[in-house]
Design a protein around this nucleic acid. Sequence first.
RNA 1: CGGGGAGUAGUAUAGUGGUAGUACGCAUGCUUUGGGAGCAUGUGGUCCGAGUCCGAUUCUCGGCUCCCCGACCA
Length: 425
Amino acid sequence: MKQSQLFTKTTKETPRGATFISHQLFLRGGFIFRHASGIYTLLPLGLMVLRKIENLIRKEFEEIGIQEVRMSILHPAELWKKTGRWDTAGKELWKIKSRNEEDLVLAMTHEETISAIAANTVRSENELPMIVNQFQTKIRDEERPRGGLLRLREFIMQDAYSFDKDEENLDKSFKKMVEVYNKIFKRIELIAIPVKASTGLMGGSDSYEFMVLAESGEDRIAICPKCNFAANLEVLKNAEKCPQCGTEMKIKRTIEVAHAFKLGTKYSKAMNILYEDKKGKKHFVQMGCYGIGLERAMATIVEIYHDEKGIIWPKEIAPFDVHLLSLGSKNEAIKEKIQMTSEKLYQELQEVKIEVLYDDRKEKSAGEKFADADLIGIPLRIVVSEKTLKEDSVEIKKRGEKEIQLIKLSDLKNLSDFISSPASD
RNA sequence: CGGGGAGUAGUAUAGUGGUAGUACGCAUGCUUUGGGAGCAUGUGGUCCGAGUCCGAUUCUCGGCUCCCCGACCA
């Protein structure tokens, strides 16, 4: 992508009212646009990051046989009345009416809809276990949206639902999901601690929150420094001593990026999801649900991976692999050579499937291009300039590192090796 | 839902009971190109409503919006 063609621009100024670093950097870098509190558009760069996260999750899920669906976000009120949540969900549940005075609900979550489907599809023990997933918009009338993308009124959630024949198998599905979540968080470079939490509105028997340690976090959890046992403060009555080893617990601020619930039979009973065992006897299925807030995960990453100049994206979810900067020169001939070299490099990188943001802007000063590169946070920066061409080279620098290397133009074949090498710490 | 802060140009900010200023941006021209570059010209603004006053962007009241802390959530 040529930066001159990019829909958005960056700004130097920190927008008024943005106190969270991720919020500031997203706005300044042109990743998002705010329409109202907790309501944002994802601009091209923001959408690219979100899709990277989404696709990474999708691939991990495909590998363990999870199917994908996309459920509606308009739900008939009747569904929510069946489970009782029409009354118990509170003000967060957004209720609307159609022109015919039909009561509808905007999807706050999808237990009701998936259960309605399962009630109509699950028949026999042989069909279980089953896990289905979706990436879909959730709409919640939040009392207090905050921190840009950290807490939204409208957001994309990855939400998966498991169906099992009994509790023992539910435990297996649950474990499988926790394992895949750990894998996902590792890939997006978040250290997410599974923390025992209360089940709240969702109901069911057991739940785990995936908490990422962050200064700007809004939750407080207790962690045992010795055995790493962690629990939400609302579940733990006595937060001073670890219930497992008796060591004094430490309180840390965290952001909740995911939540996994064992729902048990709450929804299968309400919605009549029954299977027949081998003897022809009917049983309610055991359900579980598992969700990651995509925008929140994205914002959490920025809360952790940034410096005073901008974002430092982890490799797997950066909007581009390479930021190619083409600088100017007062010498016409050199200027032309710089342009030709960068243009060629841009084409070559794309040919080997490296995603490049090419700063081809002619009117921008070198300083501004560097500042933008730091702000946007693409993992690898390549500079073509008068200085580098004197050495028949381009300059390569990793975002977040100080080291700058010159690489001969003739050695650029190896660039893709260089890019795919694991990020050093 | 309780507590606190804030609304002035596209953005960030200053100031004043009497003609609203600066910087950035944007537009045009020229000059520039290794850390948000220079000169010139131009563009453009007091959240809404009521009240006090000769006069309100400023004071008072009401509303709306945004941000932060607490409760809840992904």
